[in-house]
């Protein structure tokens, strides 16, 4: 396996893709979980499918179409929510389904033999091209820069948006930046785990990280590292046994969550038992 990693460039690309996706997921995933934007992110991810379909129809790079659609969907949801009184859950549901519907429609209108969409829906990390890696790297740098350069503001915005507004900070800017960053993250994830599975890679590592730390920055770092472990080992397993990479990575993460979650519960119980024994 290690040998083939040096030999085949497609494996090197896959390795890089898994690495970049994990770092970004750890950072943005932590924010999504803490700001309760999980279903919002699911909506944005599915809306991007419309753009991928349009990309095929117009003959442009499908992922660019996906990027445009996911940004428009995230801005659309927040703007409509603010202008009307519609529940954001309802809006997310609409964008979610409309994105998928448009995608299917555009693909059926595309002349010629219909393209295989499973790699977008469920990811196919072994087919990532080097141009896509470059795009991923640029998007990752943008995301990391926007989070780290104004980290104190993010912490305040996530913890108490109202107070942040009262002290005079323009929180609307943060909302827009955050939604765009989520859209960029989704695009990075499409090739790695796919539209449908992306939400799991965003939420599972932060959920595990929260068992260990109560510090926002550390939570992001631990989530990123966990993501790297899951996606790289998932990649190797899927390559070795010739099974789908996206599913392998997600299932590995979920197994990781249950193992770590239940062992930390057990550990706490043992600790409690020892404390009780000392008291008696």
């Amino acid at each position: 396996m290690i040998e083939s990693l040096f030999r085949y460039s497609f494996l090197q690309n896959a390795f890089m893709a898994a690495f970049l996706a994990s770092i970004v997921c750890g950072i943005i995933g932590t924010i999504i979980v803490e700001k309760r934007l999980v279903s919002m992110s699911g909506g944005i991810a599915h809306a991007s499918f419309g753009g991928i379909g349009l990309g095929y129809l117009l003959g442009i790079e499908p992922i660019i179409g996906g990027l445009v659609f996911s940004i428009l969907a995230s801005l659309g949801i927040s703007t409509i929510k603010r202008k009307t009184n519609t529940n954001s859950d309802t809006l997310i549901g609409m964008f979610w389904a409309v994105g998928m519907a448009l995608g299917i429609l555009f693909i059926s209108l595309t002349p010629g033999y219909p393209p295989d969409m499973t790699s977008y829906l469920f990811g196919d990390i072994l087919t990532v091209s080097s141009i896509y890696i470059k795009m991923m790297a640029i998007l990752s740098i943008i995301i990391i820069f926007f989070i780290m350069s104004i980290f104190n503001y993010w912490r305040a915005y996530l913890f108490d948006e109202e107070f942040t507004k009262v002290i005079g900070v323009n929180v609307l800017v943060f909302e827009y930046i955050l939604f765009i960053l989520i859209a960029l993250t989704i695009v990075i994830l499409i090739k790695v785990v796919g539209i449908i599975l992306s939400i799991a890679l965003l939420t599972i590592p932060p959920a595990i990280a929260k068992l260990f730390t109560y510090n926002l920055k550390k939570m992001m770092i631990v989530s990123s590292l966990l993501g790297v472990v899951f996606s790289i080992s998932g990649l190797f397993i899927s390559y070795q046994y010739n099974i789908p990479s996206g599913s392998t990575i997600i299932l590995l993460s979920v197994i990781g969550y249950f193992v770590v979650g239940s062992s930390s519960k057990l550990f706490n119980k043992i600790k409690l038992y020892n404390v009780k024994k000392e008291l008696i």
């Binding site: 803490e34 780290m148 350069s149 104004i150 104190n152 503001y153 912490r155 305040a156 996530l158 913890f159 108490d160 107070f163 942040t164 002290i167 005079g168 900070v169 323009n170 800017v173 929260k210 730390t213 109560y214 510090n215 926002l216 550390k218 939570m219």
Partner: peptide, 25 residues
């Protein structure tokens, strides 16, 4: 359950209105 400690909550009140890059307290 939000991952923030007491000191960081209090320091929030000291955030400058105008967003400054790489701000530290």
């Amino acid at each position: 359950n939000f991952p923030i400690n007491v000191l960081d909550v209090i320091l929030m009140g000291r955030l400058p209105k105008k967003i400054s890059l790489f701000h530290r307290y």
